[in-house]
């Protein structure tokens, strides 16, 4: 069997099995039915959709090298380690390649204070509850109060860069988080104002 045929069979298989899964999930639904009304997402949901997006997680990685791109890959050759202050090593640092703004000629992204989050703020591989707990824990968040966290999330230029991520080296726009900047800021403020309650799951 040639590869194309294999892929075709695989594709058919996937389609078929998803159909079965989907129908077993909801036996009453039919393909022609109206899409179900969206359940209202809480401010926490909206905020976490952003914080778990690769635009954020890439700079809160596990390990000490940044992840890159929409597929969060590690470039073995280019991964500058975090270093003592999150800005890389003594001689080769984030600023060797990144400036305070995106560079459309090269596709190298940039924003003020381009850096990796400290190790205590690793998000990669964590659940949204774990991320939230860690983010609000002064032991691990650099001694920040909820108000300071709110300020970081809603005003820091590096965080807000997520909505102006620029183009990559092939000239293609980078993916933005699934929630708009405005809705994100509103959600963060609401969540903090209402006591920053972290749901159980």
């Amino acid at each position: 069997m040639n590869t194309k045929k294999t892929l075709y069979a695989l594709f058919l298989g996937i389609c078929l099995s998803s159909l079965i899964l989907w129908s077993s999930d909801d036996p009453t639904a039919s393909p022609s039915a109206e899409p179900p009304t969206e359940t209202k997402e809480t401010p926490f949901d909206l905020m976490m959709q952003v914080l778990t997006h690769q635009r954020c997680v890439n700079c809160h990685p596990a390990g000490d090298r940044p992840r890159k791109g929409d597929d969060s890959h590690i470039t073995r050759a280019l991964g500058i380690p975090r270093g003592n202050d999150g800005h890389g090593l003594q001689s080769i640092s984030c600023g060797t390649c990144h400036t305070t703004e995106n560079n459309d000629y090269s596709g190298v992204p940039g924003a003020p204070d381009w850096a990796l989050a400290p190790e205590s703020m690793t998000w990669e591989g964590k659940t949204r509850v774990e991320i939230a707990e860690q983010m609000m824990d002064p032991q691990r968040n650099g001694g920040k109060s909820p108000q300071e966290i709110m300020k970081h999330l809603t005003e820091h230029e590096l965080v807000l860069w997520a909505w102006e991520p620029g183009i990559d080296a092939e000239g293609l726009p980078r993916e933005k988080p699934p929630v708009s900047k405005k809705d994100f800021i509103t959600a963060v403020k609401e969540w903090i104002a209402s006591g920053a309650i972290i749901p159980e799951a």
Binding site: T75, R76, A77, L78, A169, E170
Partner: peptide, 24 residues
Amino acid sequence: LYEKMDLKENKLFPINYGSYDMAL
């Protein structure tokens, strides 16, 4: 150890250093 080109939808890639993994 490292070097390889990939091909998807008629595009050969990667198309730059860094992503084309080389010994340093």
